[in-house]
Amino acid sequence: MSEAVVVTAIFRPVAGARDEVVRALSSGIAEVHSETGCELYAIHDAPDGTIVMIEKWSSNADLDAHAAGEIVARMTAPLAGLLESPAEVTRLAPIPAGSSYQGQL
């Protein structure tokens, strides 16, 4: 069995574009939750003004299929010109600590 993968994606909106970025990213969240392997897909405001997406996928294969899919393309197309830099996407691996429940998302 594959190990689940947690992802962070950090979006840095240009001045005045926060609401447009949130709107674009929010547009497909319900659909993404219906994709195979999606366990968590949520966006958050960070104190520095960035938008942070936190994702959890059942496997790297499921995440790869999602990343190459039509929903992501539709969500990210409107971001052209709205970000200071490309999104910073990081795949994370848990470091065991405490119980299996306490040590990972």
Results as ranks from 00 to 15, higher is better:
90 T>S: 05
14 V>C: 13
12 R>I: 01
79 L>H: 04
102 Q>F: 01
22 V>A: 06
70 E>V: 04
19 D>L: 00
35 E>Q: 13
99 S>T: 12
99 S>P: 04
22 V>Q: 05
20 E>M: 02
102 Q>A: 13
68 A>F: 07
82 L>R: 08
40 L>M: 13
17 A>P: 10
96 P>D: 14
104 Q>W: 12
73 A>N: 14
55 E>L: 06
2 S>Q: 06
65 A>N: 12
8 T>M: 02
105 L>A: 15
42 A>I: 00
20 E>S: 07
66 H>N: 14
19 D>T: 07
67 A>Q: 05
91 R>Y: 00
82 L>D: 10
76 T>M: 15
36 T>W: 00
32 V>R: 04
32 V>I: 00
4 A>W: 05
48 D>E: 11
19 D>Q: 09
93 A>I: 05
88 E>Q: 06
53 M>H: 01
84 E>L: 15
47 P>Q: 03
9 A>C: 09
76 T>Y: 10
103 G>V: 00
97 A>T: 03
4 A>F: 13
36 T>P: 11
5 V>L: 10
9 A>Y: 03
68 A>W: 04
46 A>Y: 02
91 R>A: 05
60 N>D: 15
10 I>Y: 06
8 T>S: 09
38 C>L: 06
30 A>G: 11
16 G>D: 11
55 E>H: 02
96 P>H: 05
15 A>N: 08
53 M>L: 09
2 S>C: 06
69 G>R: 01
12 R>V: 02
71 I>W: 00
63 L>M: 15
75 M>D: 15
25 L>P: 13
4 A>P: 15
11 F>A: 10
42 A>K: 02
75 M>Q: 13
12 R>L: 00
94 P>Y: 04
18 R>K: 09
101 Y>C: 09
4 A>N: 13
68 A>N: 09
65 A>G: 13
96 P>E: 14
63 L>D: 15
63 L>S: 11
37 G>H: 06
62 D>I: 03
90 T>L: 01
16 G>L: 08
52 V>C: 11
33 H>K: 04
8 T>C: 07
64 D>V: 02
43 I>S: 11
67 A>N: 08
10 I>T: 13
70 E>L: 11
50 T>Q: 03
30 A>V: 06
21 V>S: 05
